[in-house]
């Protein structure tokens, strides 16, 4: 029995040793993720691409030639990240060479080049429960606040009652391939996230998690067989003092 344990201990030791080495190194790195700046730096796109399916169902709005989508809490314009989109992409309109986007309760103003001009937090006391945008026939911005239309003057942030009865531009599901979103993966996955997923095996999906489980069981076997051999040193082929028999 002891000889079998010794043999099992030796054979599994190499595999488990490598696994433990990786777990130890990745664990130390994760413990110091902020100090080592791996929580704020991103993996290359070829690694990040493994996290997503080739085609993605995203929430978006198409405005003429421009396509706005929300991905992982960020607003993407034609595939390039613009700014964060907290609360989901709800609506967007194009007016006076600007693109105006409603993300959660934030109104995001983009200039004609797609540069963020300003973010206005409507939920910070300007307008309540805004869920859609539209452009009136007079070319003014109309918001739907608590179910009612109101004209919003962006310069003064003042609301005027509106009799708008047209259609609202709300977001819908957009099917997009990774190839059409070149900026999608650029800063999607941090090294911290990647290391954590390697550490747990989750990066390889269910097989990776099961593989980690098996290796963890091997370590348990190693520990138990080591205890048994330590408790029976002579039968294990060693004297308590370490002298050879």
């Amino acid at each position: 029995m002891i000889n079998f344990l010794r043999s099992l201990h030796r054979r599994t030791g190499v595999i488990a040793g490598l696994f433990l080495l990786f777990m130890a190194i990745s664990g130390v790195l994760l413990n110091h993720a902020e100090r080592l700046a791996i929580s704020g730096s991103f993996v290359p796109e070829w690694i990040a691409g493994k996290y997503f399916t080739p085609e993605l169902h995203l929430t978006g709005v198409v405005l003429g030639e421009h396509q706005l989508v929300e991905f992982d809490g960020r607003l993407l314009l034609d595939g390039s990240g613009v700014t964060f989109c907290d609360g989901g992409l709800l609506s967007a309109v194009s007016i006076h060479e600007r693109i105006i986007v409603l993300c959660g309760s934030d109104l995001i103003l983009l200039d004609s080049a797609g540069q963020l001009e300003e973010r206005i937090s409507l939920g910070q006391g300007f307008a309540a429960d805004v869920d859609a945008l539209a452009v009136s026939t007079a070319d003014t911005l109309v918001i739907r606040s608590a179910g009612r239309p109101a004209n919003l003057a962006l310069d003064t942030l003042t609301l005027q009652p509106s009799s708008f009865t047209g259609s609202w531009l709300t977001s819908g599901e957009v099917l997009i391939s990774q190839a059409d979103l070149p900026g999608l993966l650029h800063d999607a996955i941090t090294w911290e996230q990647f290391l954590l997923d390697l550490h747990s095996g989750a990066f390889f999906g269910l097989p990776g998690i099961l593989f980690s489980d098996v290796l963890a069981l091997i370590i348990v076997v190693m520990v138990l067989s080591g205890f048994v051999m330590a408790a029976n040193p002579r039968r294990a082929g060693r004297c308590p003092s370490g002298d050879k028999e």
Binding site: Q115, L116, E117, E118, R119, I120
Partner: peptide, 8 residues
């Protein structure tokens, strides 16, 4: 750089 072009 600050993210926006203008600040209110």
């Amino acid at each position: 750089r600050y993210e926006a072009l203008r600040v209110r």
